[in-house]
Design a protein around this nucleic acid. Structure first.
Length: 655
RNA sequence: GCUGACGUAGCUCAAUUGGCAGAGCACCUGAUUUGUAAUCAGGCGGUUGCGAGUUCGAUUCUCGCCGUCAGCUCCA
């Protein structure tokens, strides 16, 4: 047991009042002294922001706060306790199970078990039932602080816990928590007793390596979640269901945007509709880069000599698709996993003047990365993709301006989609190339440029690329999920490796600096994000089919087709659905395909040269009768401004 | 890659203990000529992912392969 200093601890309450208590005082006593009702509602307390439970002796003074189920700090405590209750249940039902770790996580909790035979979904149901019993039993969570020797005795039958104990530092307090028959090595904090848990749901079971190490044994991990209130749990589960409905894999099929085939896992087949969307994205980017960018194309296959120069052969070979060279019989050719080396070759192929800098190469070339088969997932993790990639060669003095300009451009691009981004500044990682001096320069330059934008950013120490620091853009979509998309990476190493030079004002050779930057990350993943963000109801400029014209009966098909012809001539993507089906049927299909405008032509419209325009998702309420000209003007304006759709009209996706 | 679950018509899903593989939608044909989210009738469509094995008989059981999905430290 570590020494506890004897000087009284000063606790400052939120109202400014100060309590002095002897070290080792239990928080519950402090809370009780504030009020009995508060104690009944208290889940945990925090001292200077560090959350602990009511039965962990106080060791430090500081800002003292009491957390009830209203406070965000309390939810992880509840979920951590839920994890223990799960372990308690599993041990009752399957006494042979060894216990691993069981923490609270963002959306709930998990617990790892080592068992001879994997759990089944039926086991999960049995565990959940047992958990309910344990919750009804209101078993107190008893905390004990024990010596290393005692801990080892308690967990003599749990090898995973023993290993954990051995990892603990000598000065760390070893504590255990007991609820009923179950003892766990645990730092806490926990709720007072198992009855505090009311709304728990076990969600899935999957394998997880012990300590995430694929060389270690595989454990069974059970995921679950818990909430204070029933409707919170139900809402959470409902949100998961809703997210499934806008899953891009499902919508991609329903909206006929792309498909996958087992003969080329991890590579999308884009349908006409999906291709149309990607082309719209391309045009937008080209428009943004009209000024000062050179779009180029470079080969897809390279001799390994290039990868040896770039360093990929040593650091990235596992992820590259190697190709057999028939003449040498060796796999010494590779599909490119990145564009940078080929751009550097392009740069090095000519003499460059300082007057040309910054020189910006952009490309949409296809890249291949050999991701683990188990890592593939829809459009978000693929083996073949296109980046909106760009490499900028510049002088060090130009970095600040350029980065400033890039940040604005990238944020502007996201804004077009109604996406907001958070910036992260990532510094030198442990595994890196280049001298410390180089890193000092690079980090200072990039950071200075970032600060000049005046935007808030988060510092990610050690998260940089191996060749330089970077700014990452994490984008939040319409349902609050974060995706890492854009990146601005400073590279002092590649110019050396590729011996890149430009001729300066002084007529001697100088090293340029390289900036790698991507905006969408990859078009594949960006499409996946857009599909989910808009739930398939894309802005007009992006929608693969912008207008569907529907004649009520054959008699007006001529007028309908004439309208479509005019729309197409104006550069819009319009179709005519004059199939022999009922009007309702065709309207329904147009709505299901999320076509922004369905223009109906009946007797009146045919006579007047008008269209009855139905707006997607508005339930027919926003219909307007417009002349073809007025309608065209309006849609063209929406396309020109890349107007965002009114997402409040977003219908619940249909099953 | 590893662990588990899954793979039946273009799509979404059925099929008792192993016993003739079905439905809806889509598609095709015909009828119907429709005013804002599914008109009616008929028809086409499958060597049940692929390959072995067990069995009188396999969608069903076993094994291998392919693919899909979930997960693979947010540290007791």
């Amino acid at each position: 047991m570590p020494d506890i200093a004897t000087a009284p601890l000063r606790l400052t309450l939120p109202d400014g009042a100060v309590r002095e208590v002897p070290p080792g005082t239990l928080p519950r006593e402090v809370v009780l002294s504030i009020g009995e009702r508060l104690l009944n509602a208290a889940v945990a307390v925090s001292v200077d922001g560090v959350v602990q439970d009511l039965r962990t002796p106080l060791r430090h003074g500081g800002a003292f706060r009491v957390h009830t189920d209203k406070d965000p700090e309390s939810l992880p405590v509840l979920r951590h306790s839920a994890a223990h209750i799960l372990a308690t249940a599993v041990r009752r039902v399957r006494p042979d199970a060894h216990i691993g770790f069981g923490p609270a996580i963002d959306e709930g909790f998990y617990y790892d078990f080592e068992v001879a035979t994997p759990f089944t979904p039926e086991d999960l149901a049995a565990f959940e039932a047992e958990m309910r019993k344990i919750m009804a039993e209101k078993l107190p969570f008893e905390r004990a602080e024990v010596s290393r020797e005692v801990a080892k005795t308690v967990f003599a039958d749990d090898p995973l816990k023993l290993e954990r104990i051995d990892d603990l530092g000598l000065d760390e307090i070893i504590s255990t928590y007991t609820d009923g028959p179950f003892v766990d090595l645990c730092r806490g904090p926990h709720v007072p007793h198992t009855g505090w848990l009311k709304h728990v749901k076990l969600q899935s079971v999957a394998a997880a390596y012990w300590r995430g190490d694929s060389n270690r044994q595989s454990l069974q991990r059970i995921y679950g979640t818990a909430f204070w209130k029933k409707d919170e749990l139900e809402q959470h589960l409902h949100r998961i269901e809703e997210a499934k409905k806008r899953d891009h894999r499902r919508l991609g099929k329903e909206l006929d945007l792309f498909l996958f085939h087992p003969f080329s896992p991890g590579a999308a087949f884009w349908t006409e509709r999906g291709t149309s969307m990607i082309n719209s994205l391309h045009s937008y980017l080209r428009e943004m880069q009209r000024d000062g960018y050179q779009e180029i194309k470079t080969p897809l296959l390279y001799n390994k000599a290039l990868w040896e120069i770039s360093g990929h052969w040593g650091k990235y070979k596992e992820n590259m698709f190697l190709v057999l060279d028939n003449e040498t019989g060796e796999h010494d050719i590779s599909l490119k996993p990145m564009n940078c080396p080929s751009h550097h070759l392009m740069f090095a192929a000519k003499k460059h003047s300082y007057r040309e800098l910054p020189l910006r190469y952009s490309t949409y070339d296809v890249l291949h990365r050999n991701e683990l088969s188990g890592a593939l997932s829809g459009l978000t993790r693929v083996r073949q993709f296109q980046q909106d990639d760009c490499h900028i060669y510049l002088m060090e003095t130009q970095i600040a301006d350029e980065v400033h300009r890039l940040v604005e451009m990238i944020l502007g691009y996201y804004r077009t989609f109604g996406l907001t981004a958070r910036l992260k500044f990532a510094t030198r990682p442990e595994q890196r190339i280049g001298s410390d001096e180089m890193w000092d320069n690079a980090e200072a330059a990039l950071r200075g440029a970032l600060e000049s934008t005046g935007l808030p950013f988060e510092l990610k120490v050690g998260d940089g690329a191996f060749y330089g620091p970077k700014i990452d853009f994490d984008v939040m979509d319409s349902i609050g999920r974060a995706w890492q998309l854009g990146t601005i990476q400073l590279d002092y190493a590649a110019p050396d490796r590729f011996d890149l030079t430009y001729t300066g004002e002084d007529n001697t050779a100088h090293r340029p600096v390289v900036i790698h930057r991507a905006i969408s990350g990859s078009f594949e993943r960006f499409m996946g994000i857009l599909i989910e963000h808009f739930a398939g109801a894309f802005p007009v400029w992006l929608a693969p089919e912008q207008i569907r014209v529907v004649p009520i009966v054959d008699d007006y098909a001529t007028e309908a087709r004439a309208a479509v012809t005019r729309m197409r001539a104006a550069g819009l993507r319009a179709t005519c659905d004059d199939r022999n089906e009922t009007l309702n049927y065709r309207i329904r299909e147009s709505e299901l395909m999320k076509v922004p405008y369905t223009a109906v032509v009946g007797k009146r419209e045919a006579a007047d040269g008008t269209l009855a325009v139905r707006v997607r998702g508005a339930d027919g309420k926003k219909q307007e009768i417009l002349s073809v000209d007025d309608f065209l003007t309006r849609v063209l304006e929406e396309v020109r401004t890349r107007a965002l759709p009114d997402l409040s009209f977003l219908p619940e996706p249909t099953d």
